[in-house]
Amino acid sequence: MADFFEIDILPVETKKSGDALALRYRLDGLTWVHVVDGGYQSTGPAVVEHIAKYYDGATYIDNVVVTHPDGDHAGGLRTVLEECEVGTLWMLRPWLYAAEIIDRFTRFSSVENLERRLREVYPNLVALEEIAIRKGIPIEDPFQGTTIGHFHVLAPTKARYLDLVVASERTPESVKEAEETALTKVGSFFEATAARLVNLVKAAWGEESFSTQETSAENEMSVVQYAELLGERIVLTGDAGRAGLAEAADYAPLVGLQLPGVDRFQVPHHASRRNVSTELLDRWLGPRLATQPARGEEKFTAFISSALEDPDHPRDSVVRALIHRGARVIATEGVGKRTGHNAPRRDGWVAATPLAYPEANEE
């Protein structure tokens, strides 16, 4: 069999979007299976079934990566760990660093109590840790500079990750935030409400509009991965926000990724307007083109995990911005999608129809 790679963007179908990616690649006669997130708990069985059906009955997964602790990414991996043989679980566990950050909290003087609290607020990670320990699966930290199979971790650094643990609304009040917590929570409520009241405004080619709000601390914890497989550059972003994407871009040249220029790009956070900006997309994908490429002449593939019943994702503004840079944009929207190179043929699978160019931006 010739060398190849395939990336499956599996459907996570609830009223809210989630992420579940399965990858298989063969290089120099050796094959790796690499799973990144597993959607909600209800998605887990479908991930296992997909791998068994389309990856030649595989039950061994070389690497399982938890990009961040949210349930729409980590939940389904419980089934994956339980039912498959896994080489390594890659996951960041905040309680391991309680001793390093305890001085930044007002409510705790005991490392043990802080560890306990961090376990309470990140139950998805605790559940995965318990399964891994019971089954003897090694757990490694995917900080910047780590290599996972043929993938390089571009972000987060340990220092930024610890800052995010302290800043998270889930964790106990930090010294810096203690006096502002009440105002922050009230503000978050009104911001969340306003986010559902977005209007669409017709816009000309090239015009872009993104939210001024930032994504959550948990999303910013996302592990960003990069690999060059068979001459194609692949970037997997999880739900990384602007800070995470900037940190990853800063590090990219150190592992041979000269930006701009990506061939397969996972659009972060189901194509939310809070995770990207014009400047960041220019940096990663290149400047806006003068005109839209003709069908079949796109410069790269951008893929989005978005549930059919989710009214908030993908955002038209983000889809527009990707197409401005020459992307062929595909989204799950109830149906699994695959992108790859030299990938084995699958009966019943047909070419995905890319998303059309939206004529309007969200305000």
Rank of each mutant, 00 (worst) to 15 (best):
E100Y: 05
S42M: 11
E82T: 12
G75M: 02
D70Y: 11
A52V: 11
E49Q: 14
I61M: 06
M91C: 09
D56H: 14
A98P: 08
V65N: 05
D62P: 07
P69Q: 09
D70Q: 13
E82K: 14
W95M: 09
E100P: 04
A98T: 07
V47E: 01
C84S: 14
E83T: 08
T43N: 15
G38A: 00
G71R: 14
V47H: 04
E83N: 10
V86R: 03
D37V: 08
L89Y: 04
V36H: 11
D103N: 13
H50C: 07
G76P: 02
D56N: 14
V64T: 04
T67M: 10
V80K: 03
E83H: 12
V65H: 06
Y55I: 05
E49F: 09
Y60E: 13
G44N: 02
T88G: 06
A58C: 07
T43G: 02
V64P: 05
E83D: 15
G76I: 02
T67H: 04
G76F: 00
G87D: 04
E85C: 09
D72N: 15
W95T: 10
V64A: 03
P94T: 06
E49L: 13
R93T: 12
L96F: 13
G38Y: 00
V64Y: 05
D70K: 13
D37C: 14
Y40T: 06
G76E: 00
V64L: 02
I51H: 04
E100L: 08
V86C: 00
E82G: 03
L89E: 00
V86E: 03
G39N: 01
T59H: 12
L77P: 05
P69L: 02
K53E: 15
V65T: 08
M91G: 06
E85K: 14
V66T: 04
G76L: 00
D62W: 05
Y60T: 12
R78L: 09
